[in-house]
Design a binder for these strands. Structure first.
Lengths: 191, 191
DNA sequence: GCTTACACTTGACCTATGTTAAGAAATGAA
DNA sequence: TTCATTTCTTAACATAGGTCAAGTGTAAGC
């Protein structure tokens, strides 16, 4: 499976598209590269694109009134990243998106995205399932944050997502888990 | 707008359907009533239906290993309710859904739901947007739970969702906010 | 290979929220 | 109206995790 078709491969997992559709989809996306530490989106800007990560690792975060960064997403290969609130409303975003590794992405603008969905209704199905799963996931993260200890959340992440510990600094993982780096350090020591 | 067509009214907000589609949709749903304190789903069962609330108020919650209830959703008129993880996978649910008021609902089974989506592709669009919004919402609730104080969350809920305080006991609101009733009581006293 | 910045750990102390237990107030059924 | 149940509040005490400050790795870029 060549890199170029990873996106198509994932779309086909949940919906059926014609060869013609495939070409229309691929030609709507533009391939971009981004270096480690560079930003894809800066708070205050409108999130113009939604990105499919073909290779690499990125984080999205916001900065609170005290200047502290809070990470709400860490995404790696074969996942989507954007501030979807800003992307779909085309209002300015409060989030930043930054590459944690040199990364390769496929991007599509809001306008082209809406057009593509009208042209290829099968894509509505793909994104319906995508958001459905994302929603289920967000709810389970919410439950864990509300009702489980930081240690339980850490252990679950270690089990479910071990690769992230190879590729992402603990400071960011701590923030993603909703705790400080100091607390994460203490949790790791206890084991 | 008669009660029977509330569902259609909301679907039409985000997608275009024919008069014929409307009939097909309405005939796929079955109208049910449920009394206060009665359950729509009990943990261990498969969530067979997804429900559109035409009138009333329901909560969904799970019971942890210590026997404590944790509420993850409170839904009122013109919203959907289900354990969508169980509904879409047709595996057994860990959640309960209970009516907080005598309620009127429209329900559709998983099988009929999947069929309806195939028959009426425009519905994929409706549910894509629905889940997209639900996802954005869940993420913002997650952020608030991780990084804001209970008091800030309470004030935001009071501002965004004042009706809920008229209709739902504070015990449930506390759980929804991720705190104990005692803490909520202290927060309310401080103001 | 050095240097500098970043990543991680540790310890002392603090605070928001949980826990337990009791009682007051409100609501609904008879 | 009265009684029983549910809902809400209060207080004393406990604790997970935050904050601040310092120090030790460790790795990127020159």
């Amino acid at each position: 499976m060549p890199t170029d078709n990873k996106l198509i491969y994932y779309i086909k997992k949940w919906t059926t598209i014609t060869k013609e559709d495939e070409l229309a989809i691929l030609s709507s996306f533009e391939s971009v590269k981004i270096k480690r530490k560079k930003e894809l989106l800066i708070s205050g800007q409108i999130c113009k694109y939604i990105y499919f990560i073909t290779k690499g690792c990125l984080r999205s975060f916001y900065i609170d009134s005290k200047g502290t960064e809070h990470i709400y997403q860490i995404r790696m290969d074969n996942n989507w990243i954007a501030d979807i609130q800003s992307f779909f409303s085309q209002n300015s975003s409060k989030y930043n998106i930054e590459a944690l590794e040199d990364s390769e992405l496929l991007r599509i603008s809001h306008k082209q995205f809406e057009q593509l969905l009208l042209e290829i209704p099968a894509l509505e199905r793909y994104f319906r399932v995508l958001f459905q799963k994302a929603y289920i996931n967000a709810l389970s993260r919410l439950n864990a944050t509300m009702w489980e200890t930081a240690m339980d959340r850490y252990n679950e992440m270690l089990k479910e997502n071990p690769e992230i510990f190879q590729r992402v600094p603990l400071v960011y993982i701590a923030s993603y888990l909703g705790i400080t780096p100091e607390s994460l350090s203490r949790i790791r020591k206890q084991k």
